[in-house]
């Protein structure tokens, strides 16, 4: 399963970077979103996969018994998801502004306008 998830994460990265190499502003942002998903999956996979229990202590007990998923990468990824959303939204609005100002969504044309 690790192999499959590794390939999946790699595919998200490949597609994300391919889109970032395009000249369309919109494609760039979608690429950014793919990278964000790929990274979350990457950190999660790198932190050891397990189908065991979620890191939630059962009621009435004080500690986990038996194997359980590592809570640390989960805490990392949880905030990364939300931050990724914030950054993506910001980038999106920025792109939108640039598009509105230059009337184009071709990155190369924009640099001609500003430069």
């Amino acid at each position: 399963m690790e192999l499959i998830l590794a390939i999946t994460s790699g595919a998200l990265y490949a597609a994300g970077f391919y889109l970032m190499l395009r000249r369309r502003l919109a494609q760039l942002i979608v690429g950014l979103g793919l990278l964000s998903n790929g990274t979350n999956l990457l950190i999660f996979t790198a932190g050891s996969l397990t189908r065991a229990k979620a890191p939630i202590i059962p009621e009435g007990q004080t500690a986990m018994t038996g194997p359980f998923a590592d809570p640390v990468p989960q805490a990392l990824v949880l905030t990364a998801i939300v931050i990724g959303f914030g950054v993506l939204a910001f980038a999106l609005v920025l792109a939108h502004r640039v598009h509105a100002m230059t009337g184009s969504d071709d990155i190369d044309e924009m640099s001609k306008v500003s430069g």
């Binding site: 590794a6 990265y13 050891s48 890191p55 640390v72």
Partner: peptide
């Protein structure tokens, strides 16, 4: 892009599947 995704997948596979024991996680648990 595919080259990069591929090399990343390779690294991730060997790192992620290594199942390193987690120290910090057990402290929190």
């Amino acid at each position: 892009s595919i080259l990069f995704g591929g090399s990343l997948a390779t690294v991730l596979f060997f790192v992620g599947a290594a199942h390193t024991p987690f120290g910090l996680g057990s402290y929190f648990a």
